[in-house]
């Protein structure tokens, strides 16, 4: 076959469009297989727990740091605008809404896409190119179940927990700034920060987190599981996992926010 660069442009485009759609189809099949396998025994609970631990272990430090700084800086930067109206007492409430509704889910998801998604892509990718996945297929185990299902379940559980954790840490960062400037007490700050947040807000954030967690897991696993062509393929699997899951997370964010707003203002 001729190298791509020498083929007529029309052919290259149609080939790319073709492979785009066959990739979409493959991903949908992959997701379908996940939902089929996740509910059928045998289960791999030990591997799920191990993966949850790995995810937490890998991202906790970065999430703590980012959460704290985000809360602190966001508060600091918002103060001047509010103080123009003498409304600095609204700061906790403003920050609370921003963190719980928007910042914690999104930032956590992006961090996890970078740290966890790339790791899953690289790990499964290297298992694929070194034939470890085929070795598993030859044994009594099901590599899809053992590797993919356990990881996707783990990210779907862990990202929501990490989002809650980041929410708390973010508020803590904000509290430090507010306490230094306005001498607000801890209980008053948290009361003010959370008073405007409805049950719908919490639910929406948890749902977002579940969707993001699932996305990160499934994209990383799909790319790693289907990696090809040696060590180069491993790097690509890791890299592409991050790019695709971040892209999907932004799209999902927009869609979910639209739906939530629609519910919020419908009644």
């Amino acid at each position: 076959m001729e190298p791509i660069s020498k083929q007529p442009a029309k052919y290259v485009i149609s080939k790319n469009v073709d492979s785009f759609f066959s990739e979409i189809y493959a991903i949908i099949k992959f997701i379908g297989l996940f939902f089929k396998e996740v509910f059928t025994p045998p289960y791999e609970p030990r591997e799920v727990i191990k993966q949850c631990y790995e995810i937490g272990y890998r991202s906790l430090a970065l999430i703590s740091l980012t959460g704290f700084i985000t809360g602190l800086v966001f508060t600091k930067q918002s103060r001047p605008s509010l103080s123009e109206f003498g409304a600095t007492s609204w700061l906790p409430s403003l920050v609370g809404i921003a963190i719980i509704r928007a910042l914690a889910p999104l930032i956590t998801a992006l961090i996890c896409a970078g740290k966890v998604g790339s790791n899953i892509g690289a790990e499964l990718g290297s298992m694929r190119v070194s034939e470890q996945i085929e070795a598993m297929e030859m044994s009594a185990a099901d590599p899809f179940k053992f590797l993919v299902v356990s990881r996707v379940v783990a990210t779907t559980i862990m990202v929501p927990l990490l989002v809650m954790y980041m929410g708390l840490i973010g508020l803590l960062g904000s509290y430090v700034n507010v306490h230094v400037n306005e001498q607000t007490s801890f209980t008053v700050f948290f009361h003010d920060a959370l008073v405007k947040i409805s049950f719908l807000d919490y639910t929406a954030s948890v749902i977002k987190a579940i969707v993001y967690g699932f996305t990160i897991g499934i994209v990383g696993c799909y790319k790693g599981f289907n990696a090809t062509k040696g060590t180069e393929g491993v790097g690509r699997a890791a890299n592409v996992s991050v790019v695709i899951s971040m892209f999907l997370i932004f799209i999902e964010e927009i869609i979910i926010v639209q739906i939530i707003n629609w519910i919020r203002y419908a009644g």
């Binding site: 790990e123 290297s126 298992m127 070194s130 034939e131 470890q132 085929e134 070795a135 598993m136 297929e137 030859m138 044994s139 009594a140 099901d142």
Partner: peptide, 20 residues
């Protein structure tokens, strides 16, 4: 297929030991 594969031992080119 899984049943049949249990009767087949496969030594892979690079040994393919689970490295974790």
């Amino acid at each position: 297929l899984r049943q049949l594969r249990l009767k087949i031992g496969f030594l892979f080119q690079g040994s393919a030991l689970y490295d974790s």
